[in-house]
């Protein structure tokens, strides 16, 4: 680490995206990497032992500066997977880290604001509003079980080398970033992230439901009611409205 590097830079911060992937072929990975390449400086990826051409796809993007392919999957040991990704990301001596899933897209406004969000010394993390798109890429779901966008999700953090980073050791539902950021000042941005993980046709949604029920039949790690709601015939969907450039987020 450079001795002269100030702890909190107000300019010239590098933005590094960090991502874990597994068998993303045919899904949104290529689009995500394309978009990220437009507003981040680096991308580091842990490939959880994909068996398709996910790794080759990642390599094809110049901004993917680090790609580690695991020999065996850590999917069922989520804490270990998160730790591996974290350690890979911090090994690059980053300024700011953006935790991105392979099916997440930042709205245009968020991409434009990104530099302003990180070139300051008042706060050390940024939380966004995540929207679960449902059945397609035009609408998001909003109901009793699907309302993550009513809260903020921390995805963008300043890396502080000597800080005490703690992630609870669990096998599922491990937070994507160390819990320790909760004690540092944060900014809750009214900027949005589109999650396409549920933007699937009905058959694919059913397959996802069945996978959840297989992994967690007793609802130890998640809500059984929420799992069942995946099969809802008529979920409440809201049309996504993209903000125009001059519109400020509320």
């Amino acid at each position: 680490m450079s001795k002269d590097k100030p702890l909190r830079k107000t300019s010239g911060n590098r933005l590094t995206a960090m991502m874990q992937v597994r068998n993303e072929s045919g899904r949104y990975l290529e689009q995500v990497l394309e978009e990220l390449s437009g507003f981040v400086d680096d991308i580091v990826i842990v490939d959880d032992a994909s068996t398709d051409d996910t790794a080759r796809l990642c390599h094809s993007f110049a901004k993917v500066t680090k790609l580690v392919t695991l020999e065996g999957p850590l999917f069922h040991r989520e804490w270990e997977l998160r730790q591996t990704l974290w350690e890979l990301a911090v090994s690059t001596d980053p300024d700011w880290l953006l935790s991105v899933d392979a099916d997440e897209f930042y709205e245009e406004e968020a991409k434009r604001e990104m530099r302003r969000l990180i070139d300051q010394d008042a706060y050390d993390s940024v939380a966004f509003r995540l929207y679960d798109f449902w059945g397609g890429t035009t609408h998001y779901r909003e109901d009793e079980h699907w309302n993550i966008h009513t809260k903020h999700t921390r995805t963008l953090v300043r890396y502080l080398p000597q800080f005490y980073y703690f992630t609870p050791q669990m096998n599922h539902h491990v937070p994507r970033l160390p819990l320790s950021y909760a004690v540092l000042p944060a900014f809750f941005a009214e900027l949005r992230v589109k999650h396409y993980g549920w933007a699937l046709p009905p058959e694919a949604l059913r397959q996802k439901y069945e996978r959840y029920m297989e992994l967690d039949p007793e609802g130890k790690w998640g809500s059984l009611e929420q799992y069942r709601s995946i099969l809802d015939d008529n979920p409440n969907l809201v049309e996504w409205q993209e903000r125009r450039e001059h519109e400020r987020p509320e």
Partner: peptide
């Protein structure tokens, strides 16, 4: 460290 972790949890 343990206390800090428990506070976070």
């Amino acid at each position: 460290a343990k206390s800090f972790e428990l506070m976070l949890l």
